[in-house]
Amino acid sequence: MLFIQDFQDPVPHLLNHEMTLTEFKFIWYMEYSHRMWGRAVGLAYILPAIYFWKKGWLSRGTKGGVLFLCSFVCFQGLLGWYMVKSGLEEKANSYDIPRVSQYRLAAHLGSALVLYCASLWGGLSMLLPQHKLPETHQLLKLRRFAHGTAGLVFFTALSGAFVAGLDAGLVYNSFPKMGDRWIPEDLLTFSPVLKNIFENPTTVQFDHRILGISSVAAITAMYLFSRKIPLPHRTKMALTCLLAVAYLQVTLGISTLLLYVPTPLAATHQSGSLALLSMALWLMHELRRFPK
């Protein structure tokens, strides 16, 4: 009965007219698994936090971080519900394909990335001893470079949510040009112009391309710049891993585009963005200022 009830939602009827109940079950189980996994992640944060807190194993500084993470994981769950809700709202007199709001999808992904980054940073701080690096002018430049690059990688990953939310990966399946042009004609067809950035599939894909290429270029330049600076072995390893994952990720992105976005490859590309962000965060952690 639960499958039949959910089968009445607008998505199966308007998006896939010939979908059978058996086919719908596969999608339903995917969604259900994601929800259950999200709840399991929430419990994995909250239950140990309660136990460690009661045992007195958390320092004063750690308690603040733990409270933030536990609060944020709850916020992430609520944001996920808010996102899904947007795809189940049947609009009167509308013939649009029902889909979740790309804005809410981006917010849900963005908050997940923030939660992941905060967790990873905390883990790295506990597990990896900090280097005492000489505060030279070149090191300061490299540190700023690493911060800017990590921010660029983050926003590139975030822009992927708009690509997914609008199916923008299916608009132009050629590279490096979009069709037969470097700049497509329908780049700014929406009015007002600002609306194109978030709602025009062509502009969304164009922006994602530019951000991706800029990320790889920035990482390459940073790697070459770092070669002039004496760095610890672990820091050099972080730089090398970041460079390698960046080129792997751009290869995955181009392949996904040229092959018309097959789901397994698209999912791998999405996972690659998280791996790239992890490498960027690791490098930031390696270069952080030693406390006095």
Rank of each mutant, 00 (worst) to 15 (best):
Q130F: 00
A112E: 10
L109G: 05
H131Q: 08
V114Y: 05
A107F: 10
Q138N: 13
G123K: 00
Q138R: 13
C117N: 10
A118D: 02
H137T: 15
S125T: 02
L113P: 09
L120S: 01
T149M: 05
A157Y: 02
P98I: 05
Y95T: 14
L113H: 10
E135Q: 14
T149R: 02
L140T: 11
A161W: 05
F145G: 12
L120H: 00
R99Q: 14
E135Y: 03
S125I: 00
I97Q: 06
K132C: 11
K132T: 04
A146Y: 02
F162P: 08
A112T: 15
H137Y: 12
S125L: 01
R144N: 14
A161Y: 03
T149V: 11
L115N: 11
M126K: 07
V100D: 09
C117Y: 04
A106I: 06
R144C: 10
V114A: 13
R104M: 14
Y103F: 14
H108Y: 07
I97V: 06
K141F: 11
G160E: 04
A146T: 06
F145D: 09
R143K: 15
K141H: 14
L109W: 01
Y103K: 12
L105H: 03
R99L: 09
T156W: 11
K141P: 01
S94R: 07
E135A: 09
G160S: 05
G122Y: 00
L139R: 06
S111F: 11
L139I: 10
H137I: 14
F162A: 07
P129A: 05
L139M: 09
R99F: 04
